[in-house]
């Protein structure tokens, strides 16, 4: 059973069997507006927690995405090349960005649970 964590930079990561699937949250996609392009990391890239690993381009502006964990990128969402709107339609599902082989599970402890993230968002209002 996958476990989902959130970051204060509005990323989510769903972890199962040592592999995390990363995307941006529903709140983030709504703030960004219509997504027209997503620049993804390369498969095989080694990333550190906090690295700017992806860039989301909306009609308005470019926004960086920071990796919530360290590890090796094992897969990217190829569908986003032709259908970047998936990020708006299913931010926390089909609009995922990349999958990463975690090197340090303890990094997950710094992330937020769904309830904590929800409370964090309420604090931003």
């Amino acid at each position: 059973m996958a476990k989902i964590y959130y970051s204060e930079e509005h990323e989510w990561i769903s972890v199962e069997g040592g592999v995390g699937t990363v995307g941006i949250t529903e709140y983030a996609q709504e703030q960004l507006g219509d997504v027209v392009f997503v620049e993804l990391p390369e498969v095989g890239a080694s990333i550190d927690k906090g690295d700017d690993v992806a860039v989301v381009e909306s009609v308005k502006a470019a926004s960086e995405v920071y990796s919530p964990v360290s590890g090796e990128v094992v897969e990217i969402n190829e569908e986003l090349a032709d259908a970047p709107g998936l990020v708006n339609q299913h931010a926390e599902g089909d609009g995922w960005f990349y999958k990463v082989n975690l090197t340090d599970d303890s990094e997950l402890d710094d992330l937020l649970t769904r309830a904590e993230y929800k409370a964090f968002l309420e604090g931003l209002e």
Partner: peptide, 8 residues
């Protein structure tokens, strides 16, 4: 800056 969305 927008109402429903810029593309629309």
């Amino acid at each position: 800056v927008q109402y429903s969305g810029i593309l629309h």
